[in-house]
Simulated scan of single mutants.
Amino acid sequence: MATASPAWIVPVLLALAALCAAAEAEASPAKVPAMYVFGDSTADVGSNNYLPGSAVPRANFPHNGVDFPTSRPTGRFSNGYNGIDFLALNMGFKRSPPPFLSVANRTNRQITRGLLGANFASAGSGVLDTTGDSIVSMSKQVEQFATLRCNISARIGEEAADTVLSRSLFVISTGGNDIFAFFSANSTPTAAQKQMFTSNLVSQYKNHVKALFGLGARKLAVIDVPPIGCCPYPRSLHPLGACIDVLNELTRGLNKGVKDAMHGLSASLGGFKYSIGSSHAVVQSIMKHPQRLGFKEVTTACCGSGKFNGKSGCTPNATLCDNRHEYLFWDLLHPTHATSKLAAAAIYNGSLHFAAPINFRQLAEDQC
């Protein structure tokens, strides 16, 4: 883990959370025409509910969703909302865009609800096509968006579609599953192996962004990977219950590589604008100053079983905590509703410590 956060970080995080809560209550008009979301379980709002097969990662059962409106599981790996939901609210939308797969097999008129956005994220997926099984890879997610784009163009015309998409926000949250897959195959990689893996991962990430740009995306909102070596699951594997350093090292390498790649793309692609929101910085701040930020438990999951509740996922038979708002982690790998709310506030309206080179609000409001 990195060194202590600056002293001003905690009060700023608290102020941002209060500010964004007030903004949600006011229900201001949406700042962008639409949000299009790509990634893994950190962004999935129910895509995997529509996939066949027993190997598909799912969260459409209790205790997931216990704090969601009507207390129902939706496919989100959370007790309530996830970070995408809060970003959508902060942007002025009444709710997150729906899973693309929930409308993909319906009429063209219903598909073009995508004019308000769609969510393509699939739990278990990664940057690489080889990551995950029986899920929607990033490559396939981009293909799905291409299909949606064709339907939008057919409905409102190519020029109008270009205008809508150029002003819309494209959110990407992925990479952690690729790191876990690499670590599962080689838990003690050499420096050369780590470098080769990270370089390939960043290269593929860059290709996905360029493909989206080619389909009309101009505003890219990237969410980096948190210190996944400190999640309950990796901790449960460590003899002393500590964070697994190699996972965190790989995460830092990926985050830096993506940061450099996005900077390079902004210099070479006309009209390309971006922001990188740092869930990594938010989680580090919570782990360093939990009580000051309203948290009491930052190592054990609220829902799960075994050591740190990190040996298995949140199932109907899992142990469930009562004070969910005081937990950093909901299950073995995912944040709670409370954590996601704080992270979204920091990424949306925060300083360069949490989002750079501009924050998500500034990216959304950019009219140039």
Rank of each mutant, 00 (worst) to 15 (best):
G132S: 01
C303G: 07
N349C: 12
Y50V: 08
F68S: 07
G271H: 04
S305N: 12
F182W: 05
M262Q: 08
L19H: 10
S279I: 11
P98Q: 09
S203T: 14
G294A: 01
P52K: 05
G253D: 15
Y233F: 13
Y327V: 05
A123C: 09
D178F: 04
A4V: 04
T339K: 00
R361Q: 15
S278T: 05
K219V: 10
E297P: 03
I244A: 07
T131Y: 06
F308W: 08
I286V: 15
T42Y: 14
R72P: 00
N79V: 13
Y327C: 06
A161Q: 13
D322S: 15
D162F: 10
D331T: 06
V136E: 02
M138W: 03
G216E: 10
L237Q: 15
K219D: 05
C230M: 04
L128D: 07
Q291W: 04
A160D: 14
I358P: 00
A118L: 12
R235C: 10
N359Q: 03
T198C: 01
N359A: 00
R113A: 06
F213V: 14
C314H: 09
F86Y: 15
C314Q: 06
L320A: 01
N359H: 04
H289E: 14
E158H: 13
P97M: 01
L87C: 02
A23M: 08
P29G: 00
R324M: 09
G216Y: 05
S236K: 02
A192L: 12
E24K: 11
T130M: 07
I276N: 06
C321D: 12
A364E: 00
Y327T: 07
H325T: 10
S96N: 13
T74A: 04
F213C: 06
P69C: 05
P52G: 01
I228K: 03
A146M: 07
I152H: 08
F329N: 04
R218N: 01
I172G: 06
K259E: 14
R218A: 02
G214W: 07
A191S: 15
G271S: 10
S5I: 13
I276T: 12
E24A: 09
V283H: 10
I111F: 08
A301M: 05
L333H: 08
M287S: 08
K311R: 15
G310N: 03
M1Y: 04
R218H: 05
A123I: 05
F100C: 03
P227T: 11
L237H: 02
V10N: 06
S312N: 12
K194R: 14
P226R: 10
F180Q: 05
P69S: 06
K311H: 12
D322G: 06
N64I: 01
A355R: 00
K31Y: 00
R155E: 10
